[in-house]
Design a protein around this nucleic acid. Structure first.
Lengths: 183, 183
DNA sequence: ATTGGCATGTAATTAGTTACATGATTTT
DNA sequence: AAAATCATGTAACTAATTACATGCCAAT
């Protein structure tokens, strides 16, 4: 999946691994996180496969050089083909907290409740973050072409998902805390 | 994580890899899916680490023998220690559909809409499934001890999460379909 | 003086997926 | 006759995580 995220961003404009990591951190990381180590190795692999080309940009000053990647025609075709397909399943959920809760019967009740209360805090923060975000702040990090502005409408739908997800999660946490307090 | 799911179930009662796979399929797979190949290899590893012991049960008839695993004292301690901890973060979301939607600006609109409509179908089915499930049907697959019945209250909270998740997801899909139709 | 941002990578390990492989019994 | 269920595993591969590693510049 990371492959397509990188192709997707590089289809907007050429960028370095560092740029991609920064962009991801404030956008796609909310539904697909990746470490910089994976980003750099995947970029190399995509270049080997001919989907990207890179160019080392010498920095003035004594700074570290940047390696800027551009998408190739083959890369664009790969992205297009991938998008032309249709997911044949819903994405399976992987939620650690639910695993823990499922097996919390033998656990100290206060320990469980503390964990849920801490999670409530985390999800409140996430919701607050999403509410403070505008999909347009991403445009500011790239060249604001008219095409990019059209992309922002799709970005907004994923942000809306995030808000609803956190809202749902919080309500469930509240109710679950109350339920377990009453056990 | 699979490690703790296996320890968690085996803490209820001894079982084979096949039993564990079946139990997971109708419970934890909704928030933590695993293939049988991974289950069998993980069970072996846990036995090597002394957290489980296994015993080969000879089948009457000419059936294949079952290997039944039991949790050891060390295994119970490991499970207890893990549950005594507290997650220091919310679980990161990984949702393929959002990645695809994020980069769908350059995509044919009908293709995007078709994918969303198909997902709507999937999530309707998931919601229907969750609504048909009772946490007690799981007890039927194991020995119905009074302790197990207490566990079922925790199982129910995870099922409730599933219902709310699918409900939220569906509403978002509906709204997103309408939004994109209006683009 | 130290923290944070810029900037890049490799190495080692663990986890997860897909494919291969077998074979009997029961149900449709 | 074919499909589903029971039952177990290995092998190959891909993806993801964690740790290691470096070094400049600007701001506090």
């Amino acid at each position: 999946m990371l492959k397509y995220i990188l192709l997707g961003f590089l289809n907007y404009q050429p960028m370095s691994g560092y740029d991609l990591k920064s962009l991801m951190d404030e956008s796609t990381s909310h539904f697909w996180h990746a470490y910089h180590s994976q980003i750099y190795t995947t970029l190399r692999k995509l270049e080997e496969d001919g989907l990207l080309v890179s160019e080392e940009i010498e920095a003035e000053d004594a700074k570290l050089n940047r390696r800027v990647y551009s998408i190739t025609a083959a890369g664009q075709a790969e992205l297009r083909d991938w998008l032309a397909q249709t997911m044949s399943e819903p994405t399976p959920v992987k939620e650690d907290l639910l695993v823990r809760l499922f097996f919390s019967g033998s656990r100290d009740r206060e320990s469980t409740l503390n964990e849920l209360r801490l999670q409530r805090q985390f999800h409140q923060q996430k919701l607050a973050l999403y509410n403070s975000l505008s999909p347009h702040h991403l445009v500011a990090d790239m060249d604001a072409t008219p095409e990019l502005l059209r992309e922002a409408r799709f970005w907004a739908t994923t942000l809306e998902f995030g808000k609803r997800y956190e809202h749902m999660y919080l309500a469930w946490l509240e109710d679950t805390i109350r339920t377990i307090e009453a056990f």
